[in-house]
């Protein structure tokens, strides 16, 4: 397991989606697509086609093997709404075919730039993607549009194209569902407004306990009430097995236990192992915040560059003492 300033989640938790995209039927009230166009001038557009989380929507589901078609849509949207802004598309650097397509298309268009990146979590977090692609410093929690940067999801481009330019209301969003709590991993076409239980009904395992999460496992949110609806900002749904009982011989079952919500160990005190500062993508020392927190000096944590933290959650993920570092950081940030 190699990690340094980030973590290759895709390699650690390989997730395969079946290629067929299925629609979820729902006849209740749904939400229509809307996009709030920024009032500030957009100087840069960044489009991320390189998700770094295995449970995120893979780019092939959006491109559907037809990159040129997607780029046409992008060109029309750009010339209509953001005519002076250059576009940067971020792709996985191993995707040679896609990169070739983009370069061939971008040859005659000076507004289109291709940027290749290693799919290491959390390099696609806003702060890091802006820093890597444009070399600009932003802080976590800031809206990038304040710096004139617009981060667009690929799905939003097709959404703007269909809703505002073609005036055609499709009202569906592609949402990948995955995890050990499901029979199979799928990419679903969902009408936002559909309750989570309706979405998962066909795929969920009933023989085990499970928990449902929105937007990934590392810094996403838990869905406690399954009647909650899926809205336009939900990126993915992960259902994980909940093992709240003891499992014998865990050393022989690390893989099986690893893809459950198990803590994989006992809660201990910090042993100064330096795992958290090795893995931290923004060069912080998260254990210092825990030391401040455990001494009851939340305010002191701010002295150690706490504002730079992008809340990716890798420090809590790797901590062998199972400390809730992300939670501690959030409390230190709010408790000043």
């Amino acid at each position: 397991m190699v990690y340094k300033k980030g973590f290759d989640l895709i390699k650690a938790y390989p997730t395969e989606f079946s290629e067929e995209v299925v629609s979820v039927r729902y006849s209740g009230q749904t939400e229509n697509f809307s996009f709030s166009f920024p009032e500030k001038k957009v100087e840069h557009i960044i489009i991320n086609l390189c998700p770094t989380e295995p449970w995120a929507l893979p780019h092939w589901a959006i491109l559907k093997g037809n990159t040129i078609n997607f780029l046409h849509k992008l060109e029309k949207v750009r010339s209509e709404y953001f005519p002076d802004s250059p576009c940067r598309i971020v792709v996985d650097r191993c995707e040679d075919e896609l990169i070739n397509d983009l370069i061939r298309y971008g040859k005659k268009k000076e507004w289109l730039h291709t940027f290749s990146m290693k799919p290491v979590y959390p390099y696609d977090a806003p702060v890091l993607i802006i820093k890597n692609v444009l070399g600009l410093e932003t802080t976590f929690g800031e809206n990038p549009i304040d710096h004139g940067i617009l981060l667009l999801e690929p799905q939003t481009i097709t959404g703007i194209y269909e809703h505002y330019m073609l005036k055609r209301e499709t009202g569906v969003r592609l949402i990948p569902i995955s995890g050990t709590g499901l029979h199979e991993n799928r990419i679903l076409k969902i009408k936002p407004g559909t309750p989570v239980e309706t979405v998962l009904k066909k795929y969920i395992r009933t023989d085990i306990k499970y928990r449902v999460f929105f937007d990934g496992l590392l810094n996403g949110t838990e869905v406690e009430d399954l009647s909650q609806t899926v809205n336009w900002s939900v990126k993915n749904i992960v259902v994980m097995e909940e093992r709240d009982y003891k499992t014998p011989f865990p050393y022989m079952k690390t893989k099986e236990l690893g893809s459950t919500t198990s803590l994989m160990g006992e809660l201990r005190r910090c042993v100064y192992c330096n795992y958290c500062d090795d893995i931290c993508p923004v060069n912080l020392e998260p254990a210092l915040y825990w030391h401040c927190y455990s001494r009851g000096e939340k305010q002191k944590a701010r002295h150690y560059a706490l504002d730079k933290c992008i809340e990716c959650g890798l420090c809590s993920y790797i901590c062998p003492s199972k400390l809730e570092l992300l939670q501690v950081i959030r409390e230190c940030k709010s408790g000043s």
Binding site: N219, E242, D244, G265, P320
Partner: peptide, 17 residues
């Protein structure tokens, strides 16, 4: 193994303890 499960994000943890 322990009974404890992750109550706060991240909801998966590495197996190193």
């Amino acid at each position: 193994s322990t009974k404890d499960t992750a109550k706060t994000p991240p909801y998966i943890r590495s197996n190193m303890d």
